[in-house]
């Protein structure tokens, strides 16, 4: 049981920034940003390429995060003045990033096994030390974003998602706030990609397959689980962040747990889906009972 939990936790820490990014985009900015898939690979690609070119891992990591933010800015510019629908803009940006990432990497796969990365030395010393460092890096970025959401900027971002017209009527530059929001989310997705590449030992052009959908599922799941015991009606960044964490941890715990029960991976997603439906129904029942 402990092994399953540790395996799930190790996957959670690298995936958490992606889930938080999706949460901000889906729940705060009220847009499903498909660019996150591309930004995830972009973060990994920039980091791997720069490290391969003997650039310092710290500079490579900063460049990876900034490149994700730039991708977010690009998508925001595409949507400027509601000219292109946010979903379509995300899809188009993903198309562009597919080729862009390939151009950056020069080939579809860069191995990091023999490269010095941010966490390689820690992993060489001990697995525990390595994972503590990965957790710290992931946690710091997520906490910075959570801290931003506590500020007035966070309040304006929430207002932008709820009612952009009202914000515009009050004279706020909504395009600038959207740009900041998308830069934040895509930067976080790049953090996730960068950390994932370092822990799995490579950056690959196809490594983001299904990431956005998984992140979306985990965020909704986390909120449902938390709503069984806590009221989620009022916005509370601690609870929202906790929901993301619990959702991701639960998802990976379920995946790892089912695999350890010797379930054929072919049926795993079907069974996982069924279990998650059961959980969501239970959350609904608990919620209804709470209201009564």
């Amino acid at each position: 049981m402990l092994e399953t939990f540790i395996a799930a936790l190790s996957q959670t820490v690298t995936f958490l920034p992606m889930a938080v990014a999706l949460y901000i985009s889906f729940n705060i900015l009220r847009a499903i940003d498909m660019t996150l898939d591309g930004s995830f690979v972009l973060g990994a690609a920039i980091f791997a390429r720069l490290v391969e070119l003997n650039v310092s891992p710290v500079i490579a990591a900063i460049s990876a995060v900034l490149s994700g933010a730039i991708a977010g800015i690009g998508v925001s510019i595409m949507q400027r003045g509601q000219k292109i629908d946010s979903l379509l803009a995300g899809v188009l940006a993903t198309f562009i990033l597919l080729s862009g990432n390939l151009l950056i990497m020069g080939r579809p796969n860069i191995s990091l096994l023999s490269q010095v990365t941010l966490v390689s030395r820690a992993f060489q010393n001990s697995q525990l030390l390595g994972w503590i460092l990965v957790t710290l890096l992931s946690g710091v970025f997520c906490l910075i974003i959570c801290a931003i959401l506590f500020t007035k900027l966070g309040l304006i971002l929430r207002a932008l998602g709820d009612n952009p017209n009202l914000l515009a009527r009050r004279g706020k530059p909504i395009e600038l706030y959207r740009l900041l929001g998308f830069a934040m989310t895509n930067g976080l997705a790049a953090v996730s990609g960068c950390l994932t590449a370092q822990t799995i030992g490579y950056a690959d052009i196809g490594m983001s397959y299904g990431m956005t959908l998984t992140a979306l599922g985990t965020v909704i799941l986390g909120k449902q689980i938390l709503s069984m015991g806590l009221s989620m009606h009022k916005f509370n960044i601690g609870k929202e962040f906790g929901a993301c964490f619990i959702g991701v941890l639960f998802y990976f715990f379920a995946v790892n747990g089912l695999l350890r029960l010797e379930i054929n991976p072919l049926y795993l997603k079907m069974l996982l889906g069924t279990i998650l439906i059961g959980f969501l129904r239970l959350a609904g029942i608990a919620k209804t009972r709470g209201q009564i």
């Binding site: 395996a7 190790s10 996957q11 995936f15 994932t196 799995i200 196809g206 490594m207 983001s208 397959y209 299904g210 990431m211 998984t214 990976f252 995946v255 790892n256 695999l259 350890r260 991976p265 072919l266 795993l268 997603k269």
Partner: peptide
Amino acid sequence: VGNAQGDINLQRAIISQ
């Protein structure tokens, strides 16, 4: 035999298991 079905997260979980 573990088949990751093209999912990197599932692949990680299989290796970890």
